[in-house]
């Protein structure tokens, strides 16, 4: 595994090529190409049901999301490539990939701190086997306290059970806390702003920017793919590239001005410009409606 010495950021990429993904036999992603460099911020936008979350799950390795074609690779600083699709989800996490869930799962009876201590230990020691020592409690506790203070979180939060009885906003803040503790190389943030009020979104936006920069102003530690319907999360995370997904494909990419346009005007121009993708979107919607009514 990588050590800090050869862990230069330049040259590290998450590379997705021709990705097709099916769920329960139905194709959702129909050939996605996307390259994110470490230190870059990308925004992924698109109407509901266009396949944005599916891309996040596929990158993380959800067992229900079957990759039928294409590749996902991690390009290392030395140019070597890791085949992400060959890895279990936990191996992907240990390789530095993080997904902030749109709907995080609750794990009753497991405290946030205990859960995070396992996660942090594994991600920082990718070759750790189960049963081997966890990160020393004192060291972990001090770091957790510090991160929670930075995120203006009540220390009591660490004692609660993972996402159990959390409000929508608390879940999202817990996801950001995990992001801060795990310091991944590449993070996919799936609607991390939903369920938050305006102040909380502003705080989340600042926090993500700070984590992404590795704590130093102007720094660039993390490659981030932000899936969002709102503008505020991008306020402190100006995207280098904005990608628009429609009907399971990325149909258009641009700069930050594209995100601003879509926020103001919606997706009518996109649908008109890419009739084939718009038709695919409509077909997917209809088959979903059938499944729901059945």
């Amino acid at each position: 595994m990588t050590t800090p010495a050869d862990d230069t950021i330049a040259g590290q990429h998450l590379v997705i090529k021709g990705l097709h993904v099916a769920v329960e036999g139905q194709e959702i992603l129909k050939g996605v190409d996307l390259t994110i460099g470490r230190g870059e911020v990308h925004a992924l936008m698109g109407p509901n049901g266009s396949g944005k979350s599916t891309l996040g799950y596929a990158i993380m390795g959800h067992p229900s999301y079957e990759v039928t074609a294409g590749s996902i690779e991690l390009v290392q600083a030395d140019g070597s490539r890791l085949d992400v699709l060959a890895m279990e989800p936990d191996e992907r996490a240990r390789a530095g990939i993080f997904l902030a869930f749109q709907r995080p799962m609750s794990i009753p009876g497991v405290r946030v701190a205990d859960f995070l201590r396992h996660a942090v230990t594994n991600v920082r020691n990718p070759d750790r086997k189960e049963g081997q020592e966890l990160m020393p409690m004192r060291e972990f506790r001090d770091e957790l306290k510090k991160k929670m203070a930075e995120l203006s979180m009540d220390p009591e939060f660490a004692r609660r059970y993972v996402n159990d009885g959390f409000s929508g906003g608390e879940m999202k803040r817990a996801e950001i806390l995990q992001l801060a503790m795990l310091r991944p190389k590449f993070a996919i943030l799936d609607e991390t702003d939903s369920g938050l009020d305006a102040d909380a979104v502003r705080l989340a936006s600042q926090s993500i920017a700070q984590i992404g920069s590795g704590g130093s102003p102007g720094g660039a530690e993390m490659g981030i793919l932000i899936i969002t319907h709102h503008e505020q999360l991008l306020e402190h995370n100006i995207p280098l590239r904005t990608h628009v997904m429609l009907g399971g494909r990325i149909v258009e990419s641009g700069g930050p001005e594209l995100a601003a346009e879509l926020h103001k005007k919606g997706y009518e121009r996109i649908r008109a410009a890419y009739p084939e993708a718009a038709a695919a979107e409509k077909a997917m919607e209809e088959s979903r409606a059938e499944v729901t009514s059945a």
């Binding site: 993380m60 390795g61 959800h62 067992p63 279990e88 989800p89 936990d90 992907r92 996490a93 240990r94 993080f98 997904l99 869930f101 995080p104 799962m105 794990i107 859960f115 995070l116 396992h118 996660a119 594994n122 991600v123 995990q178 795990l182």
Partner: peptide, 8 residues
């Protein structure tokens, strides 16, 4: 899956 996505 959620726990695995966190490295467990």
């Amino acid at each position: 899956f959620y726990a695995q996505a966190r490295g467990l």
